[in-house]
Design a protein around this nucleic acid. Structure first.
Lengths: 222, 222
DNA sequence: GTCTGGACTTTGAGTGCCCAAAATGACGGT
DNA sequence: ACCGTCATTTTGGGCACTCAAAGTCCAGAC
């Protein structure tokens, strides 16, 4: 198997993440194109390429699904990405909300050797600054059972575990409100009419989140 | 001026280094091709490109020379490369002799922001693990006046300042003999017939170096 | 002055990736 | 059964970079 170009690496990574988002269904070309920022025609021809080279299975007008080979490459990229994010934040002190794009560039350039040195330096961490799990070197990723904040029952105490959106503005917001992973909170109200969830954090004033936002915040022990 | 692709960055960097090696003479196409690992035809057409885009001046059958614009890009790449090398050695504990290729990959991927964070983390260093000077962010590079070990007079005391060869085997050798930058030594003999220089390092047994090797080791205060 | 070897340049072709726009197919509404 | 819509696929073309091989030029030998 020829080693993937960095474009291919990106395709495989995004397909994996999309597949994960939608419960292992084949991923539609439109979705691939949107994730990669290319026009649909480009996605189609690129996906055929991936299929021809054994990284994916392609069913016309249905979608694409990674082979085991493809999944391995994808998990390796995700590992790189998340380790880099953690490294940038913890070691170089970069801002939480800025690191996604940086890691996006670097993930294709770091060698296995450098990656392992970083992994050791960080103490073999299991999750990145957003709470996303870091796959191990052999491609295993531990899955915690987390619940979206938008689904917690009123009165529940919960701990923020993961933010499933890399958008810089959203991350800024989460940071400003003190909702980073690790934070403990209580769900105080649910207003289905207003499409909102109310929460309280320790001392500070209560806070209301729209469902759209509350869906992107995953917590432990709802 | 469109921003350079990473291939262009490599060309500019290598031209700069070649120009520096040979005292600012225009660099021949053969030299460019050899440095970049491409066939001569490729070098010619690429250089024309650089010229068309304002980074270099090209005189057919003479050679190429960087413009001020080109030099700025080149110095920036050299800065990246050397900061990365230092970072890999000092922070991640990688081996001296392995870092050149790593940095070669990474130098195109690190953003200005990450680079500055690394620079700060390392305490604004002025030279890399090989003793090569690190240009400042605005493209100035301090030049120490160094002398090749092969030219030191017999009896001189000197301090190793710079190793001008990135070849992994040679670096291994230098390390094994304890000749890394910073080491103090005395020139004990010169054997022009045998094409060699004898040196002594503190306690350990004296050592003889061929001229080829002694030329690649630069020292202070010959 | 001519010849010749080696450096250099040109030409033609290929790869990987991308887009725009036209063609095709599938699916719900009528 | 037919239509329109919209996702998808196909087609044709472009850009950046590469090589192989044929052509050109120059300098030094004779």
């Amino acid at each position: 198997m020829a080693s993937p170009t960095s474009t291919v690496e990106n395709y495989l990574k995004e397909i994996y993440l999309a597949q994960e988002r939608q419960g292992d269904q084949p991923v539609a070309m439109g979705e691939v194109a949107r994730s990669l920022g290319v026009v649909p025609g480009t996605a189609t021809s690129m996906i055929k390429n991936l299929a021809r080279r054994g990284w994916a299975e392609y069913s016309p007008r249905i979608g694409v699904r990674l082979t085991d080979e493809g999944e391995l490459v994808a998990l390796n990229m995700i590992r790189r990405h998340r380790l880099l994010e953690l490294f940038l934040v913890k070691t170089l002190g970069l801002d939480w909300s800025e690191i996604h794009e940086e890691a996006e560039q670097l993930e294709h350039a770091v060698s296995e050797r450098v990656l392992d040195a970083m992994d050791a330096f960080l103490g073999r961490p299991t999750s990145d600054p957003h709470g996303d799990p870091i796959p191990s070197a052999n491609g295993k990723m531990r899955q915690r059972k987390l619940v979206a904040l938008s689904r917690c029952r009123v009165g529940a105490k919960a701990k923020v575990a993961r933010i499933t959106d890399q958008d810089s503005d959203f991350l800024q917001f989460v940071e400003n409100q003190g909702l980073k992973p690790g934070t403990e909170l209580t769900v105080t109200s649910r207003l289905p009419g207003a499409d909102a969830t109310g929460i309280a954090l320790g001392e500070s004033a209560p806070l209301t989140l729209g469902t759209r936002a509350a869906e992107k915040i995953l917590v432990e022990e709802c």
